[in-house]
Amino acid sequence: MIGLVVRRLAQLPIILLVIYTVTLTLAWSIPGNPLENPDGRRPSPEVAEQMLRQYDLDSFPRFYVTYLARVTGIRYARDAMSGTIEVEREAAEAVGFRAPERPVFDFGPSLQYDDWSVNEIIAGSLPVSIVLGGIAIVIATVIGVAAGVIGAIRPNSLADFATLLVALIGISLPSFVIGPVLLMLFAVWVPLFPVSEWGTARALVLPGVTLSLPFAAYIARLTRFGMIEALASDYVRTARAKGVSETAVLLKHALPNAFLPVLSYLGPATAFAMTGSFVVEKVFNIPGIGQHFVAAVQNKDLFLIMGVVLVFATMLVVFNLAVDLLYRFVDPRIS
């Protein structure tokens, strides 16, 4: 158990290093100067050169090394040990300045949003996405499991057919269709919910439902197949034979086993719901982290691209690990 955790955590830096190298190489090759306003005046070549040099953007190897040292905290550790931070502070104070604050894991500045550091941007938007993704996964699990169980009780019945159909629609219809439809229905025509707002419980409903639907649909199908299989198994027949009530058979005996595939799906699903909500964030104007994946690439905001990719990768690995650990509690056969 502990061995597994240690092993998986030891893999994390290697995975992240590979992701870092590949992403940075790709992001670096995007054409254009990230420091130029695409609609504005073109800065003179000297200004453009100054801007690039300021962020090490004029040399790939230098950027690769300095940024890596920055995000991993190596630079902070090195400067703290050699006393540079202290010297800088004293020198700055001697001429009446306050020394720059130095975060341990420094994701650097945002090139597009001059007034924010990537640390601040991620710290502000990650909780939003975690809340939204969390709500969506809760909704998806409740709807999905309920629909799956209903379908499995009488396979090929009308109820089963209906839930399968809804599941199919949920999987096939993209959220950029469902989102605006829900908005038109429940925000514009019947103004139950706000159009574009964040920070109230009411504002969570429509985006939460929209984001949950594809997950709910998939969970419904997983549950249904799991339940049908479980209901046909020997231990369920035994339970019925000894007179256990049908509700107890379904919920106590069949469901826990049918839930296992759902559980393993929930790990990556949660990570995806929390970071892959780009479309939903766009439609409902939610200040989450998903939008940065697309916007940062379009703006060639290198620091922000690297920041969100590294955070996402870490989350994915950690969630998968969490599911593996949970599995052990639910299914005693795995050790």
Binding site: V188, P191, V195
Partner: peptide, 17 residues
Amino acid sequence: PSIGDPSAAVLAFRTGA
């Protein structure tokens, strides 16, 4: 307010937000 989607902005205007 920061509204990322231009169409959502028009909707927000129409609902009075």
